[in-house]
Design a protein around this nucleic acid. Structure first.
Length: 433
DNA sequence: TCTGGGGTCCTAGGACCC
DNA sequence: TCTGGGGTCCTAGGACCC
């Protein structure tokens, strides 16, 4: 009944099991067989080995709680640089088999194997087994692999036998698998849609996939219509060869407790986020053409504002200028806020922009020059060796609370107050309060 | 799940223009 | 000035993912 008979595809999905924790174990074999958790720097578990999971450790669990239920736990700080290296090696191993590999997240990728069976003389199952064998042998950790006729079904397949599973769902077995699959477990169907579907009396993926196309078109828009096709084995989502670290946007957000309505404090939080986002943008040689910033209320409601920049930027002063001018459009003194955030969008290559000196004002050029120095200092002495006066309140707050385990602010740290600004010949930016 | 942080994509509806 | 209808562009916000 299901399946695209005209163009049957073979899509592979690979998922690293307990990836961050597995990287740590791979690097340090003494950890093998032990309950290992990463996330020390945040105070909550971000990943854990299956030994830790067996003791009841879950994602997001507080570390003190973990130590209680699992006294022999080994808790490590997250080391994203290292995980990224493992991630790249993982993608490159899969690329030995086909160039059509999509880096989906740090520990997941898709590959389109269509046609490889006849060209290699191996079955899709044998190819998937070979990929899994290479990954596990070379990276020292286990992977869960799924193969089916669409991306959504390949995701279903790889999730079925975690950890270290290998599941193939050929066209004729689609229905049997969907019958046992709760609708809310399907990739792309979240809490809102699940709720809606339950109310329609639909609880399994098969019940959804068995509905008529007219019914689906009437009740849903494009995204869920596509999932319906994918579940029926018709591949609509292409595997797009692409790198995960090619940013379309960069955002930084931080929750503060307790919630606050203090304008100066909230603004300084936002200012700190803007500084951090700019640091990341400069590290990737990107400039933003547009930004958006938001405040999140205690009740988890957002007020957001999107703004265009007159010139693409990646230095906080330029972005703060426009945020300052618009801050009061979303800030209400009577409301308690719990978080603020910034997103840099419409990113382009800074190196292209910066060679076009004619388009830059003297001000922009001096900022770019200055931040080159600041980035060099930060490289040498640590992040936030220098920070903006407008972020001061947030930095002091981080000092008091210890900012969840990060090194506290040292006394001798500098900030770019008005004096330094004048001395360096940086235009006055404006104060908020 | 009483809720952290970083992302992508889609859509409804307003503004504006013939 | 009033009128209709349509297209396009933009933005706020929702939904979902890892």
């Amino acid at each position: 009944m299901f399946l695209d008979k005209m163009f049957p595809r073979a899509i592979l999905h690979v998922d690293g099991d307990a990836f961050f924790a597995a990287c740590e174990v791979s690097l340090n074999p003494k950890l093998k067989g032990k309950p290992v958790v990463t996330g020390l720097e945040r105070g909550i578990a971000s990943a854990m080995t299956y030994e830790a999971k067996a003791k009841g450790v879950t994602r997001g669990m507080r570390l003190f709680e973990i130590r209680k239920i699992c006294p022999d736990v080994i808790i490590l700080p997250s080391d994203y640089e290292t995980y990224s290296i493992f991630s790249h090696r993982m993608f490159n191993i899969v690329r030995r088999y086909t160039t059509v590999v999509e880096e989906y997240s740090i520990d997941e990728c898709f590959a389109d194997l269509t046609g490889l069976d006849s060209s290699s003389g191996l079955s899709y199952t044998e190819i998937a087994m070979a990929i899994k064998r290479d990954l596990e042998g070379e990276l020292g950790m286990t992977f869960s692999v799924g193969v089916s006729t669409s991306k959504v079904l390949a995701k279903v397949a790889s999730k079925l036998k975690k950890p270290s599973g290998l599941v193939i769902i050929p066209g004729k077995e689609i229905e049997a698998h969907l019958m046992k699959l709760p609708i809310e477990k399907v990739w792309g169907i979240g809490s809102q849609t699940s709720l809606f579907l339950w109310r329609q009396g639909i609880h399994t993926a098969l019940e959804f996939a068995s509905k008529t196309e007219e019914w689906v078109k009437e009740k849903f828009s494009k995204p869920h219509e596509e999932i319906w096709h994918e579940l029926r084995g018709v591949s609509l989502y292409r595997v797009c060869p692409g790198k995960i670290d090619e940013h379309k946007s960069i955002s930084k957000t931080r929750t503060f407790t307790p919630a606050s309505n203090n304008r100066e404090f909230i603004f300084s939080q936002l200012s700190k986020n803007i500084e951090n986002a700019c640091i990341k943008a400069r590290r990737h040689h990107l400039v933003a053409g547009e930004i958006s910033f938001f405040l999140k209320t205690q009740e988890f409601r957002y007020s957001t504002l999107e703004l265009k920049l007159s010139l693409p930027a990646n230095v906080p002063e330029q972005i703060l200028k426009v945020v300052i001018a618009n801050f009061d459009k979303i800030y209400l003194p009577s409301v308690l806020y719990r978080a603020s955030g910034i997103t840099l969008r419409k990113l382009t290559d800074a190196r292209v922009i910066q060679t076009d000196l004619f388009g830059q004002s003297i001000e922009v050029q001096s900022f770019n020059k200055m931040y080159k120095e600041i980035d060099a200092l930060s490289q040498k002495y640590g992040k936030h060796t220098l920070f903006l006066g407008s972020s001061m309140k947030a930095m002091l707050d981080a000092q008091h609370t210890g900012d969840r385990g990060r090194p506290t602010v040292r006394k001798q740290e500098l900030f770019l107050g008005e004096t330094q600004r004048k001395r360096l010949g940086i235009p006055f930016m404006g104060e908020v309060s």
